[in-house]
Amino acid sequence: MTLAELTALLRECAGEDEGVDLDGDTLDTPLAELKYDSLAVLQTAGRIECDYGIRLSDDAVAEAHTPRLLLDFINESLAESRAQAAA
């Protein structure tokens, strides 16, 4: 998953704060500064789980404070899921 894909899902699932530029360089901007609280991230993670058929641990999602950390975790989970499917 790319930053652009994650941003699109965040927008769709949790909206977009009028004072935030989501199309800028947000990779290491804390999600809280992007005005996404834990519930917004939980909602988006739930959507990713449904779309990609994976499970994301709530604790790990809660610890991912930036888009980069969240993407790393999601992409790790996707890779594991693919590896399991291939095995």
């Binding site: 949790a14 909206g15 917004a40």
Partner: peptide, 8 residues
């Protein structure tokens, strides 16, 4: 309504 509040 602020955009962030629409989904909720």
């Amino acid at each position: 309504i602020p955009n962030r509040l629409l989904p909720q």
